[in-house]
Nucleic acid binder design. Structure first.
Length: 286
DNA sequence: AACCAGGGAAGAT
DNA sequence: ATCTTCCATGGT
């Protein structure tokens, strides 16, 4: 068992990050202790890392405890929590835009990634076209049926397990036939090595998108969400997302939800940090 | 009861 | 290439 502390230059609002993470019933978050347990998985090697906030917005500090390859795991934790991102610079960028007030309200909220790319992709598929409550319920049911529990945290099933599921097994959990087929197909794709997340680190958003969009069940919305929540890319804005449409309608007090063309127009001043615009807009209706 | 939901595939122009 | 319809679930 090792532990270490990390100190960042602010802002970084860990409580707001935990607040959002808590939306997912699979996340083990303790708000009063400012703690989250992070399940990390590499092949069949599973480990749980505990991250505890011991600083504040302007002087962020964390205590991290875990077991295993400390350097490798710390690198991954840092990536997941966006500790390398300059949130002040991003905030300042939006002070010259319409979203000025939105960014003040959510000042210092980081983008926290899904704990691994495969889980992220599965979660995206499961969440398609479902209201958030049921989407989380369905995901939880899936993970607790086919995944593994360790130290009080649930791990998503490995690709090999997903690849060998049947449509009927998933239908029992209230998956639609389509959704079941998509999920199993992606399991097979990863298990067979035809899709490899590791190489994506060196690829551009466009290169990754053109490969992912070929997958059955993966459309533009899923690609954009994966690039954001799976890989932490900073400049994505899923115009097809109902949540974003509703958030914009509310923020600008529109009569109707904006069209995709209108959203394309709105977003230009927010580049190259569209992901943070998306994130804070989602936060505004959560 | 009818319509909506953090979409996408398949079919029809 | 773009537009329309169908898919299937729970929630309101």
């Amino acid at each position: 068992m090792w532990q270490e502390t990390v100190t960042l230059s602010g802002p970084y609002h860990f409580e707001l990050a935990l607040d959002r993470l808590k939306l997912d019933p699979l996340h083990v978050v303790d708000l009063s202790n400012k703690t989250i347990k992070v399940p990390l998985q590499e092949n069949t090697n599973r480990t749980v890392i505990e991250v505890k906030g011991i600083g504040n917005l302007h002087k962020p500090e964390f205590l991290i405890k875990g077991e295993g390859n400390q350097q490798l795991l710390m690198e991954r934790i840092s990536e997941i929590f966006g500790w390398h991102t300059d949130l002040k610079k991003i905030h300042d960028h939006f002070q010259n835009t319409d979203l000025k007030d939105l960014f003040r309200t959510h000042f210092g909220t980081p983008l926290v990634l899904d704990f691994d790319p495969f889980s992220c992709l599965l979660k995206c598929i499961i969440h398609q076209q479902l209201n958030l409550n049921f989407a989380f319920t369905l995901t939880q049911r899936f993970v607790q049926t086919f995944g593994h529990e360790q130290d009080g945290v649930w791990f998503y099933p490995e690709p090999e397990v997903v690849a060998n599921l049947t449509v009927e097994e998933l239908r029992e959990l209230q998956f639609s036939r389509r959704k079941a087929e998509y999920v199993i197909g992606i399991g097979k794709l990863i298990a067979s090595g035809k899709l490899d997340f590791h190489k994506m680190k060196q690829q551009s958003d466009e290169e990754i998108a053109s490969e992912l969009i070929e997958i059955r069940g993966v459309g533009p919305w899923t690609v954009q969400n994966f690039l954001m929540s799976g890989l932490g890319r900073p400049n994505l804005f899923p115009v097809a997302d109902i949540g974003l449409q509703n958030a914009l309608k509310k923020y600008y007090q529109l009569e109707q939800k904006p069209t995709t063309a209108e959203m394309e127009q709105m977003k230009t001043p927010w580049e190259p940090y569209l992901t943070y615009a998306s994130l804070y807009l989602w936060r505004s209706i959560e």
